[in-house]
Amino acid sequence: MSLDPTLLAAGLPATGHICLVGAGPGAADLLTLRAVRRLAEADVVFYDRLVEPEVVAMAGPRAETVFVGKEVGLHSWPQEKIDAAIVAAALAGKRVVRLKSGDPSVFGRACEEIEAARAAGLPVEIVPGVTAASAAAAQMLRPLTERGQTDRLVIATATCRPGEQPQRLAASLTPGTTLALYMAMHRLHLIRDELLADGIAPDTAIDIVSGAETRRQRMLATRLECVCEDVAAAGIGNPAIVFIRIAKPALAAGLAETARLAAG
């Protein structure tokens, strides 16, 4: 159930509702105007682990803020508990903001919360945010797609549900592709070995941006064959986006010829 446009024009309804708000990658000034407005209107804000304190502080002065962050191996707030909490608050007549890092629709578990709201007969809205891949690329001053080089963008996660077999990433790396990998750092050794075994060139360029748009931001440019060693030496960890680019063959051949002529 989405919110009626007339209600949005006049402000959110007085009865309880749930709004999934994208907090972006970190910096508070990357929030949309609508996200800022929803935070100011909220009675209660449930926020994730990766949401920066400056963003949580944008909630209205009377709003209750509830931390519902999850970490690997720590499940004091499993998804079912979060669903129940936001639904209970909205059924009590509160304006609920579910504040998620990045964009709620990109690996943000939005489906479960939307279904929980619908099952309870509650109005629900998504306010999109800047996803980490966009913020990371912007910090590198390198577009996600580049005319003549990469005209295909694939966003994927390297983490899957328990019992599921991770997808073979090499199938996504057709020439002209930028692959942006979320939640990949804990599997970086396996990803490297898999890609090399599947024929991806050892000197394939890899860029990693950790903590994009936060005070903890780090960037690393490396190659597939030595990515794990370089990451360890640089002390780069989660949260991070791993970019793998495969240029079109014509461009790659042209660059090689240019290098040959320059060397000769």
Rank of each mutant, 00 (worst) to 15 (best):
A184Q: 01
R142Q: 04
R109K: 11
A262M: 08
V56Q: 09
A138Q: 04
D207I: 03
L144E: 04
I244Q: 05
D230L: 04
V68Q: 05
A135F: 00
A135L: 00
V36S: 03
E52H: 14
E146Y: 06
D83Q: 15
P143H: 01
A184I: 03
I246V: 13
Q217L: 06
H189I: 00
K70F: 07
A110N: 08
S134C: 06
A88E: 15
T178L: 12
T150Q: 07
H17R: 08
R38T: 03
Y47W: 13
M58T: 10
P25D: 03
T65W: 00
L153N: 04
E71L: 13
T157Q: 05
M58F: 09
A259T: 14
E229K: 11
D48R: 02
G254P: 11
T204M: 03
H17I: 04
L153V: 08
V242R: 02
V127P: 04
T174H: 13
R260I: 12
G69S: 08
V68L: 11
T131K: 02
H186P: 01
P53D: 14
V68Y: 08
R216A: 14
G60A: 15
D203I: 11
R142L: 07
L173P: 04
I191P: 02
A133I: 00
C228K: 08
D198C: 14
M58D: 05
Y47T: 11
E41H: 12
A180N: 02
D103M: 13
G24F: 07
A234H: 00
L251A: 14
G102A: 04
G69M: 05
E225W: 10
E112C: 08
T222S: 10
E112R: 10
A259V: 15
T145G: 01
I200V: 15
T204R: 03
T65V: 06
G22Q: 04
R38W: 05
P13R: 00
A136I: 06
A233R: 15
F46Y: 14
R37A: 15
Y182P: 02
R142M: 03
A35R: 02
L220S: 12
V55H: 03
M183D: 12
L8M: 06
A88K: 11
D230T: 10
G24N: 09
V209F: 04
Q79T: 12
A205G: 07
C19R: 01
A136D: 03
G26K: 08
F46M: 08
P166A: 05
E52P: 01
P53F: 15
S105G: 15
R215L: 10
G235Q: 12
P104F: 06
A234S: 02
R118S: 14
M183C: 14
R95W: 07
T150R: 07
L188K: 10
Q149G: 02
I200T: 11
